[in-house]
Amino acid sequence: MQKNQVAAGCDYVNFRIVVLMKPTPDPDKVRFDAEKGTIIREGVELIINPYDLPAIELAVQVKEKLGGEVIVISMAPPQGEEALRDAIARGADRAILLTDRRFAGADTLATSYALASAIRKLGNVNLVIGGEKSIDGDTAQVPGEVAEMLGLPHVSYVSRLIDIDYSRAIVESDLESEVVTYEAPLPCVLQVTLNVAKPRIPTIKGKLQARKAIVEKWSADALADIADINRFGIKGSPTMVYRVVIPKEKERKRIILDTEQGVKAVVDLLMKEGLL
């Protein structure tokens, strides 16, 4: 993939930020099918994947700094539209829903391909932001795959945006054992953690205006000129799910240490976790 197909570099007039947002089942309302070990998805309301809220917030903050527009893209069934409206209420300017039976049954590869194709179709994208992972699929693979497909640099576990201008972003990536600072040339893909920004709650006005906003719906055909539609959905998904199991709770290990040693071990652990 040619980089310049994605973005024309620094576009001072219209800095385009794409947020990848997955509409996921509302965890308050999901029910599990214990026998099949799957989530019952029929008729369940879809909300913004909670890990994508900071991604949207960061995008809006960048827009507030550099100008331009925030475009949120989701691949989801039609009821994903409500989550996209919510994204508009939270400051997005445009919302695109990739929805078509031909996108259905996608594994992460086919999901990423569809999202990457949509970004290519948009063109002139300066920054792509994705969430750390989804609360349902939980693979954390999609943003990285999208970056690879677009041939863009990619930083994951971004916990802080230190600085950004039209040509580069300086970010901190929190790898648990260490925090690494990167400078990434734009356009690039940032996969952000929950710490990157505190999502704002929309105002009543924003929320009501979003109801009237238009959510653009793109079918597989809408991408046919720049993508191979056979790589969408189940056709484009080499992953075969063999079986899903719900893990059993582990027995506690019941390790007993003497008091002094034990207290010290617990204190050390808490300090390491940053809780003390």
Binding site: A89, K207, R211
Partner: peptide
């Protein structure tokens, strides 16, 4: 009416906070 769903969902966000 439809917009009441928005108020409810927004108030829910606020409530979680």
């Amino acid at each position: 009416e439809d917009f009441h769903e928005d108020i409810k969902s927004l108030a829910k966000n606020v409530s979680q906070e």
